[in-house]
Structure formats: structure tokens, C-alpha cells
């Protein structure tokens, strides 16, 4: 703990952060310990996954989609909640675990204000009106449609990575929540916090220009997956991944 300097008056109401001291004990964070990573490779994976997901969503919606520049970054855990607009932003989040030869977590995020636009495209109004509200402001039909979109996006995203890397990646059934971004990302941090101080985040955004619909996809590989993602050679000739 940092000692207060003598003679400096204590500020009333000042909040004092408890310092943890220099990190000791068991070494953490594969992301810090390994050699400098080639982020170009992760950018390429992020783009490939996003492009396939955008193709899939475009086919569902029957509209062309644009892909925003995908990025890949190593973020300190406490910064992860800033990656999609901050912890207070209310979003529709679809969360999936990734199993197979490279574990991790996928998060598909739409702003809450985007929901009417998205649902209007995928749920016939008559069906939506007939179903009951589930407490999150969504009817059963709407909930089902959103989970299916999450499923399709995740499968398309992971198919692209599987194809490029020659490994199997399998998504779980999606979970759905309409709530604050901070709340829907806690589980990502919790999974990583026991073994790492940072997260590799592969991010991308798809946009439907006519309606303004925007959806973000975040892939957080588990540290155990980094060798697979970062080390496996990208298969020659795999310039454009196959569609779903």
C-alpha cells in the first residue's frame, strides 16, 4: 500500500484505491508471457470469421451487409467492458461457448435500440403479436428468432476459422439476455480471471446500410487456444472461406 506523504492534507471524501502491490506468486497470463504475438494473424482470423458471418446474415435477411474493419487486440480484463460501448450500455447479447480444438467464448451484440429493426426483418409481425412477453420485453417467437440468428452467426464465424486453421470449433446453444453490457460480459472476465490478466479479443461489426442495423461479434479465445489459433498455418489456397 502506498503511504501518504507527510504534510499533505487528506482530502475529505477522497476514495482510496487499494493497491494490490507488485504481482507475485504464480505467473499468469499466457498473453504476456509468450513471445510477441503476430496480431496480423488474429486480424486475418477476425476478418475471415466476420466475413462468413456477414454472408450468412445477409442470406437470412435478404439484404447486402457491409463489414466494418475487424480488429484484434489484447485488452486488460478491466477494459473488456469498454469494447462495445461501456458497461452501462443496454444491449441484446447472444452468448455462446466455443468447444473443440480451440476453446473460447463468442458474444454477438446488438444495441437495444436495434432490436425493433432486427426483429422486423426476421419475425412476421402477426406471429410476434400473438406470443407472450417473457419479461425481457420479448415474445417467445422473438426470443427464438434472436437465438437462431446468434446460432447462425456463430456457426458461420467458427466455420470460417475451422476452414482456415484445419481444426474443429463447435458452438454451444446460445444464451440470450437484454441487459447492460457490463452484466452480459461478467462471465467472460470470470472465466479468464483465474488464469490471466488480459483477454485477446477478435472483434468485427456488420452493418446493413439501408436500415442502419449494426451487430458486433466478439470472439475471446481461451488462453489455452492461442497456440492453435496463433501457431497453426493458414491452409494454402483458403483465400475465401466457404459459406454456411
Amino acid at each position: 500500500m502506498k503511504a501518504r506523504r507527510g504534510g499533505r492534507p487528506k482530502r475529505r471524501g477522497a476514495a482510496r484505491r487499494v493497491r494490490a502491490g507488485r504481482p507475485r506468486g504464480r505467473r499468469r497470463a499466457a498473453l504476456r508471457d509468450g513471445p510477441a504475438r503476430d496480431m496480423t494473424r488474429f486480424h486475418a482470423l477476425s476478418e475471415a470469421g466476420a466475413r462468413n458471418a456477414a454472408t450468412a446474415l445477409s442470406q437470412i435477411l435478404g439484404r447486402p451487409l457491409r463489414l466494418s474493419v475487424p480488429w484484434a487486440r489484447v485488452l486488460p480484463l478491466e477494459k473488456v467492458k469498454e469494447m462495445a460501448g461501456g458497461p452501462s450500455r443496454v444491449v441484446c447479447a447472444l452468448s455462446l461457448k466455443v468447444y473443440g480444438e480451440a476453446r473460447g467464448s463468442l458474444l454477438v451484440v446488438f444495441g437495444r435500440e436495434q432490436l425493433p429493426i432486427l426483429l422486423d426483418m426476421v419475425v412476421p409481425a402477426a406471429w410476434a403479436a400473438r406470443s407472450r412477453d417473457d419479461g425481457q420485453g420479448l415474445s417467445a417467437m422473438e426470443r427464438s428468432a434472436l437465438m437462431e440468428i446468434g446460432n447462425i452467426l456463430a456457426c458461420a464465424y467458427l466455420n470460417a476459422l475451422s476452414h482456415l486453421l484445419g481444426v474443429s470449433l463447435l458452438p454451444s446453444i446460445p444464451g440470450l439476455a437484454v441487459d447492460m453490457l457490463g452484466a452480459v460480459t461478467d462471465h467472460l472476465l470470470i472465466e479468464l480471471a483465474a488464469i490471466s490478466d488480459s483477454a485477446l479479443v477478435l472483434a468485427s461489426q456488420v452493418v446493413e446500410p439501408a436500415s442502419g442495423l449494426k451487430g458486433s461479434i466478439f470472439f475471446l479465445p481461451h488462453p489455452s487456444a492461442l497456440t492453435v489459433l496463433g501457431g497453426e498455418p493458414i491452409r494454402p489456397g483458403a483465400s475465401r472461406p466457404a459459406g454456411p
Binding site: 475529505r12 471524501g13 477522497a14 476514495a15 482510496r16 484505491r17 487499494v18 480484463l77 478491466e78 477494459k79 473488456v80 467492458k81 461501456g86 458497461p87 452501462s88 441487459d179 447492460m180 453490457l181 457490463g182 452484466a183 452480459v184 460480459t185 461478467d186 462471465h187 472476465l189 470470470i190 480471471a193
Partner: peptide
């Protein structure tokens, strides 16, 4: 003074002060 705590953060304070957490889920 108002301080917002990020995940894994701990703060102590004395009045007048507010400590907050935005978007608490399974934490």
C-alpha cells in the same frame, strides 16, 4: 466524489463519496 469500480477493483472512502458499479452480472 464519485468513483466507478471496474471488475476486480476495490476502493475505500469516507463521506461524502459514492462508489458505484455499472452493469453487475454474475460478479
Amino acid at each position: 466524489r464519485h468513483r466507478s469500480l471496474s471488475a476486480g477493483e476495490l476502493r475505500v472512502a469516507e463521506a461524502p463519496a459514492r462508489l458505484s458499479i455499472h452493469g453487475l452480472g454474475s460478479c
